[in-house]
Simulated scan of single mutants.
Amino acid sequence: MDIAQNAALVVVDVQQGFEEAGYWGTRNNPSADDNIAALIDGWQASGRPVVFVRHDSVTPGSPLRAGSEGNGFKEYVERRRGKGGGAELLVTKSVNSAFLGAPDLGAWLRDAGISQIVVAGIQTNMCVETTARMGGNLGYEVVVAFDATYTFGLEGPFGWRQSADELARATAVSLHGGGFARVVTTEEVLRAAE
């Protein structure tokens, strides 16, 4: 795997509100935060561009709603913002895809001549997956650092319930097997980016 010198790291919704277990339920992948931090550090040290995406929820009572404490980035992300040698962008959104936020992520990537993105963040099967799928549809080479994502269990139709691990695995299979993205580990990404 090759990681381009100008590949953008897209850090999706790593916000304090996702710490509210009473609202979200049981999460998976406890090492995700360390892996996200390692990716940001690696990108900033190499001078590659980093995109920080924040979800401004319009759902009443959401821990991610605009203006709430939970809307802010987790401390380890906030501490790293503005520290890299490369370009940095803040995208805010109220839907699942970072490509439908403001400012226009696609336009920013095109203007910078960036054709490869590495996606990490929260939730694996929601905003990470939607951003990766849309990126693939728009013609970007998308890499998902799977172990730098996490999600929560969810109930769907017919009383079906999927655990966080089951949902994350389904996302990985759909993205990778469906040709939307290459799903790899943080270690693989950082090694390829050296």
Results as ranks from 00 to 15, higher is better:
residue 18 F to L: 03
residue 53 V to C: 12
residue 60 P to M: 10
residue 116 Q to L: 11
residue 148 A to F: 02
residue 183 V to N: 00
residue 39 L to F: 09
residue 68 S to G: 14
residue 190 L to N: 09
residue 37 A to W: 03
residue 20 E to S: 07
residue 187 E to H: 08
residue 142 V to W: 05
residue 132 A to R: 04
residue 86 G to P: 00
residue 79 R to K: 15
residue 39 L to D: 05
residue 166 E to N: 02
residue 138 L to D: 12
residue 56 D to P: 01
residue 9 L to D: 04
residue 171 T to E: 09
residue 8 A to W: 00
residue 175 L to H: 02
residue 110 R to P: 09
residue 113 G to Q: 10
residue 16 Q to W: 02
residue 10 V to W: 06
residue 118 V to I: 15
residue 124 T to P: 01
residue 182 R to S: 13
residue 121 G to E: 13
residue 15 Q to A: 09
residue 11 V to I: 15
residue 99 F to N: 12
residue 178 G to N: 01
residue 95 V to Y: 10
residue 36 I to A: 03
residue 45 A to G: 09
residue 72 G to Y: 01
residue 173 V to E: 14
residue 59 T to A: 14
residue 144 V to F: 04
residue 184 V to I: 06
residue 22 G to M: 13
residue 25 G to E: 03
residue 165 D to C: 10
residue 114 I to W: 08
residue 65 R to N: 11
residue 138 L to H: 12
residue 105 L to G: 13
residue 10 V to L: 10
residue 58 V to R: 15
residue 76 Y to I: 08
residue 132 A to M: 06
residue 2 D to R: 14
residue 1 M to V: 07
residue 95 V to H: 10
residue 172 A to F: 04
residue 120 A to N: 12
residue 149 T to Q: 06
residue 171 T to G: 02
residue 138 L to G: 08
residue 126 M to E: 04
residue 191 R to C: 03
residue 52 F to V: 02
residue 19 E to I: 01
residue 136 G to K: 07
residue 18 F to W: 15
residue 28 N to S: 12
residue 171 T to P: 01
residue 174 S to H: 13
residue 178 G to K: 07
residue 31 S to P: 06
residue 72 G to W: 00
residue 120 A to D: 01
residue 33 D to S: 13
residue 52 F to E: 11
residue 17 G to C: 04
residue 16 Q to G: 01
residue 185 T to K: 00
residue 89 L to C: 11
residue 58 V to K: 14
residue 47 G to E: 05
residue 136 G to M: 06
residue 58 V to G: 09
residue 135 G to A: 12
residue 172 A to K: 09
residue 61 G to K: 10
residue 119 V to Q: 06
residue 117 I to P: 03
residue 54 R to V: 09
residue 65 R to S: 14
residue 68 S to E: 11
residue 177 G to K: 09
residue 55 H to A: 12
residue 154 L to I: 10
residue 20 E to I: 08
residue 29 N to Q: 12
residue 13 D to V: 02
residue 61 G to Y: 10
residue 107 A to I: 06
residue 103 P to G: 12
residue 180 F to Q: 00
residue 44 Q to M: 02
residue 47 G to P: 04
residue 34 D to W: 01
residue 164 A to N: 08
residue 132 A to G: 05
residue 36 I to L: 01
residue 60 P to Q: 11
residue 133 R to C: 12
residue 170 A to Q: 14
residue 118 V to W: 13
residue 111 D to M: 10
